[in-house]
Amino acid sequence: MFKVFMAGSVVFLFSLAVLANEQTESEASQRLMIANKLAHQVSGLVEAKAKADYQQKLKSVQGLLSAHKRITDINSDFTKELMLQKETEPFIKKAEQLAKKHLFKEAKVSLDRAYLATVASIKSQRTGQTLVRSLDFKTEKEAYEYELGRYKNYKMLVNMMINERHAFERDSRTKPFFDEENRYHAQADALVEKGQYGEAAKLIEKASKSLVNLLRNSGIYIPGA
């Protein structure tokens, strides 16, 4: 009964299409083409998203695996490193194979297993630890530029307090702080011209400290000594 009804409907629709004028046919075919194009675009977007998610997860896994290797190197625990490699390699290989076939969603699922195993291993080795970290500057110039960034940040804060918040003014009270800051800054600039970035970094740090003292003296709470 249902089949008969469906067949009847198809014949009816076909008849309607035949009866339709040329303009309607043209509009219909245009809409069909647009719909088809959109369907392809959506399908492409879904794959692009799955690919991006897969690549993102791959980056995380690779980063955490490198971190794991550094931890086991420091602890001289090569057994843990080998165990993790043995556990994660099949998942990563499988993910790569699936990604080659454009099966990114499935590839990410496989990577998730490797990711969880890596996180679990890092967790077991790091739990309860407190690590002290300093930045690893490659050159003295890099260290100077980092300090200069901090100085500019304080300078911006001081200017904001004066010009926007009107928290204090440039007057006889604040002048000694600005003078001190300018002196250190000028000395640092002179050293930079000679390429003595190490000493310049120390002076620019002192210039920053002058600004911190100015802020504190003006009633603004900045923690630290």
Partner: peptide, 20 residues
Amino acid sequence: DGKMTSVNLDLILKNTGSMP
């Protein structure tokens, strides 16, 4: 459907200038 993995690891970052 996954489980949250909490990692108990503290880091003290030292490059803070005159700040704590």
